[in-house]
Simulated assay, not measured.
Amino acid sequence: MTTRRDDKAARPRGPRPGEGRRPARPSRPAGAEGVGVLYGWHPVVQALGNAGRRLHRLLATENAAARLAAELGPLRITPELVRPGDINALLGPDAVHQGLYLEAEPLPAPGLDDLPDNALLLALDQITDPHNVGAIVRTAAAFGVTAIVTTARHAPGATGVLAKSASGGLEHVPFVTVRNLAEALIELGERGFTRIGLDSEAAVDLDTITPARPAVIVLGAEGKGLRERTRTCCDVLARIPFTGEIRSLNVSNAAAITLYALRVR
């Protein structure tokens, strides 16, 4: 494992011929408790810039390390220089890592009680595809969402593919993990949150709603949609008023449209 530098002013030293390149092995298994894997330019750069993210190990190709030094200056952790194939061996050949691989601890997760009274939340009802959840996180970061509420089960971990799809959004939108989503929605309702469920069969058009904070937008899994108990815990069910022949969208696209249409202030 690479140790941290105490001297924050030190820049990562450039490689000398034949130096620093060796087959990379994970310091502990990827996905093991207490460590997650981030890869790709935006996820890694955002994590490096987040003082709240505890870093364990950074692998970088020569070009990626040079780009980090040029764009970020001093780093909180010394890159370990490797070849692109070494990162491929850790992630698989299809991972678009852009020469960067970072092992880091998960960010601290707030609880429902820690959320401010003017929060804007997204709640995910058993959305399990990490690409979709990652894209939702990226959208949430773009629209200033306070946090994302999800369950411990039936939800992907905030690492790997999800982190890559989030493109750095994980550093800006925390996850609130609850045991039971319906109970969490009930608790939020008691605190004054308007609970808006997105449902393609709803009678209310999304653009007719003008909610104010605090609010929580509830999204269901593609195909299944919102579960029945989740639906009963919403104050209003709304649909995107499509005008074309296709009447459904990828859930991450639906999240973006919903956040824009509501523009909850």
Rank of each mutant, 00 (worst) to 15 (best):
G40Y: 00
A254S: 11
T3P: 13
P43V: 06
F242H: 15
L219R: 00
N250D: 12
I136M: 15
Y260P: 03
S165D: 04
N50I: 05
L198D: 14
E103S: 10
H154I: 00
L100S: 08
V45N: 10
A47C: 08
E201Q: 10
L120I: 13
V35T: 13
A119S: 14
P79V: 03
E183V: 09
N180S: 02
T177N: 00
A256S: 14
G49T: 04
L188P: 01
N118D: 15
I148F: 08
E183C: 01
L48H: 03
L100M: 01
G92A: 07
A202Q: 01
R83D: 15
G157N: 04
E190C: 02
N50K: 05
G14L: 14
K224G: 02
M1L: 12
L181K: 00
A66W: 13
V204D: 09
A141D: 08
L55S: 07
G92E: 06
T232V: 06
G189E: 02
G197Y: 01
D6W: 07
P74Q: 09
L206D: 14
G220S: 05
A254F: 09
A166I: 01
V264Q: 11
L81Q: 11
W41D: 14
V236K: 06
R4M: 12
V82L: 11
P110V: 02
G99H: 01
T78D: 15
T146A: 05
P23Y: 07
V145F: 01
A109C: 04
P211S: 04
L122A: 11
H97M: 03
R28A: 15
P79I: 08
A163L: 04
L219S: 05
T243F: 13
R53Q: 14
R239N: 11
R83Y: 15
G49L: 08
P241D: 09
T177E: 02
R76M: 14
R227W: 03
L72W: 11
I136Q: 10
P79F: 02
D207N: 12
L185D: 10
V176M: 11
L219A: 03
A47M: 08
L48M: 02
R191I: 03
L100A: 08
T146C: 08
A212V: 12
A109N: 04
L170M: 09
D114V: 03
L55F: 09
C234A: 04
L120V: 15
V218L: 07
A261R: 12
A9E: 15
G168I: 02
A255R: 04
N253F: 03
V176D: 11
L181V: 01
V45M: 04
R239A: 15
M1P: 14
Q126Y: 13
H172W: 07
R231N: 04
H56N: 13
I257A: 12
V176C: 15
P15W: 01
L122G: 13
V218H: 07
A89N: 12
E222K: 00
P110S: 04
R5Y: 07
I136T: 12
V96T: 08
A256D: 11
D117P: 05
R21K: 06
P93G: 11
D117C: 05
R213S: 12
P29H: 02
R67Q: 13
G225F: 00
G14N: 06
